[in-house]
Design a protein around this nucleic acid. Structure first.
Length: 113
DNA sequence: TGTTTGACCACGG
DNA sequence: GCCGTGGCCAAAC
């Protein structure tokens, strides 16, 4: 058990992402002060294997579904986002700025869910 | 125990 | 505005 590793923290932050919202690897890395966004993606790689972590809500800074290939099906990530109201086109989030959620914003700046 | 990789990001040319 | 390189830190081989 020991201390919670950084991917444990990534799980926590990822779970706190509201429905219909997304965030970036850099935002999580910055909030956790990891300094390396690569670890976030790598941590999320194992996240959905055991724990129900909405890894589909995490995209890169370009709003692209870079992790779609790591899902059971490459289309599942887009399907999940569309089901939550996130408009995805060509494996990329359209209103990226609108659905973007910051891990530091616990109080939700715009509207909660 | 050293090397390689990884769902990235920022900067420079 | 696009492409190449470095940096970042930790786990896996």
């Amino acid at each position: 058990m020991s201390e919670p590793t950084y991917f444990e923290q990534v799980y926590e932050v990822t779970r706190r992402i509201p429905r219909g919202r997304i965030t970036t690897y850099g935002a999580i890395a910055d909030h956790l002060a990891l300094g390396a966004a690569r670890m976030v993606g790598w941590a999320l790689n194992k996240s959905f294997l055991g724990d129900a972590v909405p890894a589909h809500r995490v995209v890169n800074r370009k709003g692209e579904l870079s992790g779609r290939h790591h899902f059971p099906t490459p289309t599942m990530m887009q399907e999940l986002l569309e089901q939550e109201g996130v408009r995805v086109e060509n494996d990329q989030v359209c209103n990226f700025d609108e659905v973007f959620w910051s891990p530091s914003s616990d109080f939700l700046p715009h509207s909660s869910q």
